[in-house]
Design a protein around this nucleic acid. Sequence first.
DNA 1: CCACATCTGTAGTGAACACTACATATCTGG
DNA 2: CCAGATATGTAGTGTTCACTACAGATGTGG
Lengths: 201, 201
Amino acid sequence: MGMGRPREFDAETALDQAMEVFWRHGYEGATIAQLTEAMGINPPSLYACFGNKEGLLKAALDRYSKLRGVWMDEVVAAPTAREVAERMLLGIADKQTDPANPPGCLLVQGGIACGTGSENVPFELAARRAENEDQLRDRFIRAKAEGDLKPTSDPAALARYVSAVSVGMGVMASSGSDREALRQVASVAVQAVEAQSVGRT
Amino acid sequence: MGMGRPREFDAETALDQAMEVFWRHGYEGATIAQLTEAMGINPPSLYACFGNKEGLLKAALDRYSKLRGVWMDEVVAAPTAREVAERMLLGIADKQTDPANPPGCLLVQGGIACGTGSENVPFELAARRAENEDQLRDRFIRAKAEGDLKPTSDPAALARYVSAVSVGMGVMASSGSDREALRQVASVAVQAVEAQSVGRT
DNA sequence: CCACATCTGTAGTGAACACTACATATCTGG
DNA sequence: CCAGATATGTAGTGTTCACTACAGATGTGG
């Protein structure tokens, strides 16, 4: 038995284009017509490869999380909790205003509130954000064990805090805030982590 | 000339119901059928009273901003910048997890990313958020003039920061974070404002 | 070269959407 | 009580949506 006609497009390249459309218009705001045009394929190819619109979103999120994960590994490699927060938030300020991508963060722009039939999309995004938060929390737990964070500090709360600031910055970026404004927010935000650090300079 | 048949529903009560639908499903996710059912009226009444779907959203936002403005006045009445931030963020933690309302904040849930034809909705929401930020900024400018905030502090950046944290908390609330989690975020966030304060205890 | 499997493009499908025409009902001013 | 004006309920309108049937194209294994 034969193996059939080979696909004429590259799935990852197409996913990058789809990611951009979801990023810019959100899950519900993105139409199949926009997606297929950006991906350079026709609807049947999309459905054969990704199942349906939600399957395409999940594939795009997988790709986004993968790239993001590499960067997060560099972030948590910083020597102190304060520097982790600084690297993360200042880095996010730059990433979310990078003209190479739509403004903001796909994990926020993708869909915060959705209509009937797409209720699980916001939870899907939240689950991805939670992964980042978990990674931060683990890093802050280590920082506390190393005596870098105060014995009274709450690593989970700190991680939630940094995650919340990231999300807030993403919304600001998508509604027009420029890089300098986001960097200012990041700088102020880092001071809360610094206040929980032991050897503050 | 007569004045016509009087309307049989109360516009403000109907707006409250519409507000809840937009809050829960977002602008694009909310359908006219859901809105009219929640408001207890039929489509022609909705269109006669509010023009179109976007007009209804703006009316709901006006109402939301009005209620919110009353509360913000109480917030900025706190004696110090630190207490302003604390009142604001802890209050938001409670409000965004109040079971009487959908979780989160209408100014975020309403629509962060929208599809073609609704591009201005996110900007409309951003403009409302900016009003709160301006109010905070003015309060922090005063705090700096009063010697409550350090001479090196940047009131505008502080206001942006508090606003960003609020938004981030709203997203967290809408994706299932409970009140305690939000309060922890608020507590950490306040420490950044405290770090900019003069008489820190 | 043939049977088979998979992809691709065209051209739709039914459903859901925002919005409205129209007839009827209920008010005010004279 | 009548004329004008506005609201209401029924029942649609055209459009757009996610998704797909189908026929032809292009590959592999025998």
